[in-house]
Amino acid sequence: MSPSAILFFIAAICALTGAVGVVALRNPFYSVLALVFHLASLAALFLLLRAEFVAAAQVIVYAGAVMVLYVFVVAYIGGGQEPLTAGGTPLKIVSPLFAIALAAELCIAMLGTALKGVSGKGAHYVLGFGTPGHIGRLFLTTYLFPFELASILLLVAAVGAVVLARRRRGLEPEIELERRVHIPRPAFTGTMAEAAGTRHAEPGLPELPTPGEAEREPLESGSGPPDRAPFQGGW
């Protein structure tokens, strides 16, 4: 057995283990970590296929940048333990069977193909195959249009994500804005306006409620569906 075959088997087993871990782990944070493991072992497979630049981009861009985005969002959402087996919908029983059938079909199609190269070891290796120089020359000559299209797509996606995830008026309770702007603090509680002498207490006005009691009320009662489970904390 050649060293490349041994490396192939190790990397393939690691990649499949990571893939199964993404699906089977309950905690989304552990799923993200399993995907990082899967991506790293996939980069090893790319290296075995002489795709050096793709492997480097896989590790740096995918396992580095995109997964950090995932980790941030999982930390923001709070994850939560999803029961894997609850529900018992027919989809949960049918879908593994569907996946197994699809895998068998794909394997039969790929191994039983009439393509002669599939059972070979690949084309003759040319020096410089898959290096950044070759890929870059292809990107700037033959595949210039897809390259520019990809950059426009990235720009549109970045703008779209900002538009999607920004704070919007009316869609969510504006507690912070209200508390900061519309409700003044009661007199003689040490506001900066009193210290600067620009605000004077008027004796005729009734005392305003303190911010701790009154404004917190609509937060719990009025907003959001009541059946939503409260934030559990942690991952």
């Binding site: 393939a12 990649a15 699906v23 569907f98």
Partner: peptide, 25 residues
């Protein structure tokens, strides 16, 4: 290593992902 092995691995990874899309919520 022959090319077919890589194709089999890619098919298995794809099917694992498809099953996950269907199973997870």
């Amino acid at each position: 290593m022959w090319i077919g092995g890589y194709l089999v691995v890619s098919a298995l990874v794809f099917c694992t992902g498809a099953a996950g899309v269907l199973i997870r919520r």
